[in-house]
Simulated scan of single mutants.
Amino acid sequence: MRILIVEDDTPTAEFIERGLQELGHVVDRVSNGKDGVIYALEDAYDLAVIDRMLPGLDGVSIVKSLRGSGSSLPIILLTAMGGVDDRVEGLEAGADDYLVKPFAFSELMARINALSRRPSLKAQITEMHVADLTLDLVRRTTTRSGQNIDLKSREFAVLEVLMRNEGRVVTRTMLLEQVWDFNFLPQTSVVETLISRLRAKIDKPFDTPLLHTIRNTGYSVHAPR
């Protein structure tokens, strides 16, 4: 995804930027509200992470300005103020989610992932393709080179996440959060076990591998490059 960060606290901005870039996202970063509005309106972003308190134009004002301009850009507001009224103000202004500082990067990614699954961020699709691999989201069927592949529900769910992120790295933590709803379970090997089963079904019977392990990072589905 292409993500805009609007944050005037340099350590926080760099922390978010570094984490997103490590996962393969394209990131632009600005440090004031005026530039935030300009960037958000002039460029095509998939999501924006905007601080609540900013010089010149605060985060809520940015959200109101963007919504008033007709922008449907998904927005996560960051704030050091955790009061209910403050959160309500941000959400009613048009923000899609709210995250109180300090926060773990994994929580931010969980919220980004949740927004990425909403129809507002990506068009509703019923079928996905990567090379000769097809995933039918309505019939819940999988085929490759015209051959039916029998996937169990978890295998299908993992493959769906990977194919929705075609060409991008999906980390083990992201899969645990999205498929198993585990926020933190470092000792489990369920992801590795399932990936092994999935690879045996969608890759090994065919000449060209599509499921790739990115060492020390995660997994990616993409056609040969």
Rank of each mutant, 00 (worst) to 15 (best):
M1G: 13
M1W: 03
M1P: 06
R2C: 05
I5A: 04
I5P: 01
V6A: 05
D8A: 04
D9A: 12
P11A: 09
T12P: 05
A13I: 04
E14L: 15
E17Y: 05
Q21V: 09
Q21W: 02
Q21H: 08
Q21Y: 03
G24E: 08
V26Y: 09
V27T: 06
V27A: 08
D28E: 14
D28R: 09
S31T: 14
S31M: 11
G33S: 03
K34P: 02
Y39L: 10
Y39M: 15
A40V: 06
L41Y: 07
L41H: 03
D43C: 13
Y45D: 01
Y45I: 05
D51G: 12
L54F: 10
G59P: 02
V60R: 13
S61H: 14
V63I: 12
S65W: 06
S65D: 13
L66N: 03
G68K: 07
S69V: 05
G70T: 09
G70N: 11
G70V: 12
L73Y: 00
L73V: 06
I76G: 01
L77K: 02
L77N: 00
L77W: 04
L78W: 02
T79H: 06
T79G: 01
A80K: 10
D85I: 09
D86S: 12
R87P: 00
R87I: 11
G90M: 02
A93I: 08
G94W: 05
A95M: 08
D96K: 04
Y98T: 04
V100L: 08
V100Q: 07
F103T: 10
E107H: 08
L108R: 04
L108W: 06
A110Q: 10
N113G: 13
A114C: 05
A114F: 09
L115H: 06
S116T: 10
R117S: 12
R117E: 13
R118P: 04
K122V: 09
I125E: 13
V130P: 00
L135Y: 00
L135S: 04
L137Y: 02
T141Q: 12
N148E: 14
I149C: 11
I149S: 07
D150P: 07
D150Y: 06
A157R: 13
A157W: 02
L159Y: 00
V161I: 13
V161D: 07
L162D: 00
M163W: 04
R164L: 15
R164D: 09
N165T: 07
G167A: 12
T171Y: 04
M174T: 13
Q178D: 15
V179K: 03
W180H: 10
W180S: 03
W180Y: 15
F184D: 05
L185A: 11
Q187D: 05
S189K: 09
E192R: 01
E192H: 01
I195Q: 01
S196I: 03
R197W: 10
R197S: 11
L198E: 06
R199M: 07
I202Y: 00
I202W: 00
K204C: 07
F206L: 01
P209R: 10
H212S: 11
R215H: 12
R215S: 15
Y219S: 12
V221E: 00
V221K: 01
V221W: 02
R225E: 15
